[in-house]
Every structure is written in C-alpha cells, then in structure tokens.
C-alpha cells in the first residue's frame, strides 16, 4: 500500500512534476521495477513536510520516457542510474552518461531485468 498515489502517463508526467515543484515539494527519488512483458513501473517520490506523494508511471521499456531533469536537476543521477540498470531511454537528459554511470564496456547485460542472461543490450 502506498499512500498519496497519483497515476500519470507519459504525456502528463512533466506537467505533474512541474506542479509538484511549484507546490514546494522536494524530490526524493524514483523507484523503477520491472513488471514483466517488457513493461516497467516508475514511481516518483516527492516529500513535503515529511509527507510523501507518489506519481506512478507504467512504461514500455523500449519507448523513451521524457526526462524531468529539466525541472529537478537532481533527477539526472537517478535517470542515469535507471538507464544503466534497465536500459530505459530518457529524452532530454541534461547530462547523459550513456549507460556508463556505473557500468563499464565489459558489462553487456541489462542487470535489473528478470531474465537478465537471456537479454542482449539494444544498440
């Protein structure tokens, strides 16, 4: 059970996040989970006065997600991390490490997917 949960879509994401920012919310982090069938859940956590608000976005892993690093600069590290671990592309990332934030060239698997060994990285 997650309190204060709002469902968002790819189109409404940046708008909702900007609304959070103007509401004076502090961005905590996002959590990405592979839910099978090539889909992933990304939950954006925001905090204001010790109360969490969560935006839930369900995405296809092969489609790019709009980056919110333009709204919250701090999002860039988290988006790069998700890019490393799930190979989800983010559009408009202010500083793109290109899957090299944590991983080196030797790692060719996509680590956090459930069927890691069966999957090959996409070019």
């Amino acid at each position: 059970m997650i309190e204060n949960q709002i469902d968002v879509t790819l189109e409404s994401l940046v708008g909702e996040v900007s609304k959070m920012k103007s509401d004076g919310q502090r961005m905590v982090t996002f959590s990405c989970t592979n839910i099978g069938d090539g889909k992933a859940d990304i939950i954006y956590h925001f905090d204001k006065n010790e109360v969490l608000t969560n935006l839930r976005l369900t995405v296809d892993m092969d489609k790019p997600v709009p980056s919110i690093s333009g709204v919250y600069f701090a999002a860039l590290l988290i988006e790069n991390e998700i890019q490393d671990q799930f190979d989800i592309k983010f559009e408009g990332l202010v500083l793109d490490f290109g899957r090299k934030l944590y991983l080196d060239d030797e790692v060719t698997i996509i680590p956090m997917c459930n069927n890691t060994k069966a999957m090959k990285p996409k070019k």
């Binding site: 905590v28 982090t29 959590s31 990405c32 989970t33 701090a74 590290l77 988290i78």
Partner: peptide, 25 residues
C-alpha cells in the same frame, strides 16, 4: 521501496541512500 509478491524472494528492493541525494547539491 520494497515489493514482494507472496514468495520467499522479494521482487524489488530499491535503496535510495542519503549521499546519492547529496551529490547534486
């Protein structure tokens, strides 16, 4: 962030640590 599905093994454990948040500042 912890997600379990009634199995012995958890689906996802996501750990967000404080230093991760303190690098952009």
């Amino acid at each position: 962030y912890i997600k379990g599905s009634g199995k012995k093994f958890l689906d996802r454990v996501r750990i967000r640590t404080p230093t991760f948040a303190n690098i952009p500042p």
